[in-house]
Design a binder for these strands. Structure first.
Lengths: 188, 188
DNA sequence: GTCTATATACGGATAGAC
DNA sequence: GTCTATCCGTATATAGAC
């Protein structure tokens, strides 16, 4: 059972995660977080010294979430190819959100990857998580040598699809492109 | 010959274009533009009523630039396939910048595409420019029916490659992925 | 742990002298 | 067309009562 304080902390992180995604990190203010959570300004600073600290917590939260998802997929699907299909399917399922706000990892990286930003390299760990997991699947398919570059190729394809879908705010574009990507997986 | 005022205006736009790309739109302040150009704050407001107006001018500038490039490629290469190759080659040539700051169009779209942003749909015109030109080339290759979706596929591939190259700040990743994309063009 | 009040800095934008 | 001085809002962050 989580203590009261821990629960408040989680509420702040959850709200920040959503706001950073939908509005961007720089465009999200403490006032926004206060408005969403009901937790008062001063109290937020009780849990996090700076806005950067909140961002760090949000990234940790995302890492944990995705790790859990990947573990589950490993349980659900024995065939590495099915796991790859499940990964691609995730993008298709999220097409609505992706078309509205872009990829949560990709747009965060784009924003934080700019010059003079404290967190330039932080979102890379999120990419590492997927890259390493995907590479594992390719290795199990007997493609040890190209595993890493195949993983980056697949990651890049999904990111590109998200960018196009977001620019045109059109989930249907994501569906079309994902079909071609599913074929690519099938033909491995 | 450009008048003095016109020249000053151009300097502001040029500086803003570079700053918006490298630091992001929201992270660029008037003070930054003053520091780069030497043009004083009040004087900038003589040319642009708002920061949004500067952004609009920067987008127009990019549109004009890219239009010129595309026209030149049409002159240089008669074969539509060579024109497609030239497009892909552009990404390869810019890999250094792309790895450092991301795609100038893609990262701008990611930033402005977020919620409650005045310019949510402005960068779409930049994508339209490339999409329509690429679709034209596919049409001339006898692929009228799929022209638009092939164009979006190619655009998406380059965007995805930029995202990965940027996240890992590694131009070599861009080179690798571009090779596979060149093959795709060759096999059309 | 929660809240109010406030410090401090910097953002975009304006007024007006020259 | 250029420049200085300044307004005003809002941002992050802090102090301290309860």
């Amino acid at each position: 059972m989580a203590s009261k304080g821990e629960q408040t902390r989680q509420e702040i992180v959850a709200a920040a995660k959503l706001l950073f995604y939908r509005r961007g990190y720089n465009n999200t203010s403490f006032s926004d977080i206060v408005a969403v959570t009901g937790v008062q300004r001063g109290n937020i600073y009780h849990y996090f010294k700076t806005k950067d600290d909140i961002l760090a917590a949000v990234i940790e939260q995302r890492l944990a979430e995705y790790e859990t998802a990947l573990r589950n997929w490993e349980q659900e699907y024995a065939d590495p190819k099915d796991r790859l299909r499940r990964f691609v399917q995730m993008v298709a399922s999220n097409r609505g959100e992706l078309a509205q706000y872009g990829c949560p990892i990709g747009t965060l990286s784009a924003e934080l990857g700019k010059e003079y930003c404290n967190h330039q390299r932080s979102p890379r760990r999120l990419f590492d998580l997927f890259r390493d997991w995907l590479a594992d699947q390719f290795r199990q398919l007997g493609k040890s040598k190209q595993a890493k570059s195949l993983a980056l190729h697949l990651l890049g394809r999904t990111e590109g699809i998200s960018v196009i879908g977001h620019v045109y705010a059109d989930p249907a574009l994501i569906t079309t492109e994902i079909k071609s990507l599913q074929k690519w997986v099938d033909q491995l």
